[in-house]
Design a protein around this nucleic acid. Structure first.
Lengths: 337, 337
DNA sequence: CTGAAAGCGCTTACAG
DNA sequence: CTGAAAGCGCTTACAG
């Protein structure tokens, strides 16, 4: 098999100049139809594909966008990534993805490998560590290199850039209200993802609702690896709680499992609402009522915003989108309202 | 904010040549320690990062690998992708991902956008359509462009390249045997992913086991969007089946749900084994016994193989890895064996 | 130890 | 309508 064919070789074979070949291939009106045809035929015959690296070097944009997310396994991120990829391929962009594994260091490394010209912009959802420590030095290097940034879902006020979010706090407040309206009076908040801005927002919303309702708060943070089963069961048996708002899907499922295993009925003895509408929510028995975060839409919007920014269609001022969300009512909550 | 700083500017500021700067930055022993230090300091000060595009153009390798998968939402692929990314970042490679959405056309487009020099090699898992139609013309263009290919999970014999698989047929056979040994005598095979090589392999394994056992086969293909609930319940109530091997996770979950909803007990009335060890398998009640496909390992091995191929560490002959898999016993099967 | 020069594969003003 | 030349930002033999 011969080497990859270049403009140079095509030019030699046709006895014309490289410029002519280049222009012909790009359908420049400068070139005569006959030459254009001749060039294209030979190019096809040789499976010629222009080297993007060289093209990019000239045009200095790459039509590829970097994506750094904390993980892909959680349904929310897989779904968001799906949205990003779909929109990207629609708009003719490629995506390079890096996973930070919730670590600030890995995040910084990924940024470093991506700001070297191979990417027109960066879409990120921040790692837990970055959010917790509010350490954003590594993010700032982006701006030193004039690489535009779009943040989605896990954002930070300190960073000024385009942002896509959902109104987590409001949604949590509404979800809490719904539990109340369906007859629940002792509502607990369970979080398996403390340390993230979203979990915090959701807690704030929960607390705000309780304040209005004049209900006592009960916030429980836990490590998903060791769910506090006994504690939950104790709370139910002592009738200290009759419902749970969980800040994430897995948390909600673990709450339901523990309650069911202990012999309680859902939603009769315990109502549950989760966040993130994943496959588990849909297929668990009973199915889980949940706040839909519209992960795909967040991803799509992030990508669109990025492209608009790159192509100069946005004003200097950064945009801050807050997506509408909705509560999906399923079988883990009562309907009497 | 100034323009991106280049070697040229650093050279000008230091009153040395571009070559010197380049060599200094690359720690060439040709350059005196003092100059090296001076250059590096200025580079840091200016946040200099070499333009990979230019580097690649010279060295003609990009240290990035393209990945084309049919989807990211199914747990298997998310997990495989996770493995690929992890290993890539370990070995200093970046990955560009494209999703074919199970379509041959999208697959072909993705290949086209990736073979233009921006990728050192391609890792793929084939779309259903590609596997069903055995249409591999678009794959062949890869070879015309001398881009190495590694196939994992969904492969095709007609394509000669490095391959990573699990022994689906054998695993299905073993899983069927296990159902038998645990006392099941009427074993059905449910597939929500017909049209894929893996589903077919698994069916073959199932059939092979039944043949040995002299049991009558019962194969049911269905569209995951409309699971044949009545049919399943009918089969159970008429005692025509006492167990199910499902070719995928969602299929297994749907089988369990339908049976449970109809009032049957698992595993007492119906034993179930699935494929793909996802979160649903783990958290469903009862938890699902399943064949672990070691998705992450497949991903990691695919990436490693790719890198070895690129770096010339592999012999001309293509390798064909078959990974060991294992059955994870949980609560959807009986233990009396 | 330092630098001038060629070249990676392309694009694009500028001449002719 | 066609081509020579410069340049994108780097690397690397080759001279000095």
């Amino acid at each position: 098999m011969e080497k990859k064919v270049t403009l140079k070789e095509l030019a030699k074979q046709l006895n014309v100049s490289i410029s002519t070949v280049s222009k012909a291939l790009n359908d420049s009106p400068e070139i005569s139809p006959q030459t254009r045809k001749k060039v294209k035929e030979l190019a096809d015959l040789n499976y010629y594909v222009p080297n993007v690296l060289a093209q990019n070097l000239k045009t200095s944009h790459t039509k590829t966008i970097g994506v750094i997310i904390p993980a892909i396994l959680p349904h929310f991120f897989a779904e968001a990534l799906h949205g990003i990829e779909t929109k990207a391929s629609e708009l003719g962009y490629r995506i390079i993805i890096c996973i930070s594994n919730e670590s600030i260091q890995k995040e910084a490394e990924s940024i470093k490998t991506l700001i070297n010209g191979q990417v027109d912009g960066l879409i990120m959802s921040l790692s837990k560590e970055t959010q917790a420590k509010m350490d954003i030095d590594h993010i700032k290097t982006l701006f030193n290199h004039k690489v535009p940034l779009v943040l989605f879902d896990r954002v930070l006020d300190q960073i000024s850039c385009d942002k896509i979010q959902i109104n987590d706090s409001l949604q949590a407040e509404l979800a809490t209200m719904e539990l109340y309206n369906s007859g629940c009076k002792k509502i607990a908040f369970f979080s398996g993802i403390s340390n993230t801005s979203v979990s915090n927002e959701r807690k704030q919303g929960y607390l705000a609702a309780l304040k209005n309702l004049d209900i006592k708060e009960k916030v429980i943070s836990f490590d998903p690896e060791k769910f506090p089963e006994k504690k939950l069961v104790g709370l139910i048996s002592r009738k200290e709680i009759d419902s749970v708002l969980a800040s994430d899907e897995l948390g909600a499922i673990l709450v339901m499992k523990s309650a069911l295993d202990a012999g309680y009925k859902i939603p009769k003895d315990l109502s549950v609402i989760g966040f993130t509408n994943g496959t588990m929510s849909k297929h668990f028995r009973p199915s889980l009522s949940t706040v839909d975060q519209h992960a795909q839409d967040q991803g799509k919007l992030a990508l669109e915003t990025m492209v608009d920014r790159i192509e100069g269609k946005l004003s200097e001022k950064f945009s801050n989108y807050t997506l509408e969300t909705s509560i999906i009512h399923r079988d883990s909550t009562r309907r009497n309202f």
